[in-house]
């Protein structure tokens, strides 16, 4: 149980993917102009991140490591993610049109989202991940990998939703034309990062 809480706190807050590890910044800045699309993007990313961990972790430990071809990981992972996103898109279109309408337009963007490839690379880096969630290096398994993917995704959702709320307010303010767009969004992100910094002190 303590382990479970540790993973949640570490993945969502202390090592938040967006504002602490800087993964998935493109959608964080690009799709955070309004609350609804931010939530849709966040949940779509969470879904893909969880599934990615579920697939890439066994591929790495059961196929690549025994065959001694770890160096193929980048090519294989990006291939898995791209096909996974494509399959999810087709499945959603076929079985759940409502969900497809809510999430569909964000799905193609997810292939090139570094948060997804980032989590796949992070969970196989046993030394680093064990340090992050506070377990012994040897006891890393697929369960931890999938949980980490899920909560890292929820952390991403949290950050992007917070960002969208703040940006809706900031959009109404008169802003210098050179600060409009990306710079002001990054200053807002700067404050979110400061808030998350508090968790690192725990």
């Amino acid at each position: 149980m303590a382990q479970f809480i540790m993973i949640i706190v570490s993945a969502m807050f202390i090592n938040n993917f967006v504002v602490v590890q800087f993964l998935g910044i493109c959608p964080f800045l690009g799709v955070s102009k309004d609350f609804k699309s931010a939530l849709g993007m966040g949940l779509a990313v969470t879904f893909v991140m969880t599934l990615t961990c579920l697939i890439t972790y066994p591929i790495y430990t059961l196929i690549l490591v025994p065959l001694n071809i770890e160096y193929m990981e980048i090519i294989i992972f990006i291939f898995v993610i791209a096909s996974l996103v494509q399959m999810i898109e087709m499945a959603l279109k076929r079985f759940s049109p409502t969900l497809y309408n809510a999430m569909g337009i964000y799905l193609p963007l997810i292939t090139t989202n570094c948060a997804v490839l980032g989590v796949a690379e992070l969970v196989i880096d046993t030394k680093q991940i064990a340090g992050l969630i506070g377990i012994a290096t040897g006891s890393m398994n697929i369960g931890f990998a999938v949980l980490y993917g899920l909560f890292a995704g929820l952390g991403f959702t949290l950050a992007i939703v917070l960002m969208s709320g703040l940006r809706e307010k900031v959009a109404r303010l008169p802003i210098n034309k050179h600060l409009k767009g990306f710079p002001i969004a990054m200053i807002v992100a700067c404050f979110i990062a400061m808030a998350f910094y508090v968790f690192a002190l725990i």
Binding site: V19, V20, F22, N176, L179, I184, M186, A193, Y197
Partner: peptide, 13 residues
């Protein structure tokens, strides 16, 4: 990490 966002914003502006 907050300073990172701030610096980037400053440089773009």
């Amino acid at each position: 990490s907050a300073g990172s966002f701030f610096t980037y914003a400053l440089f773009i502006a």
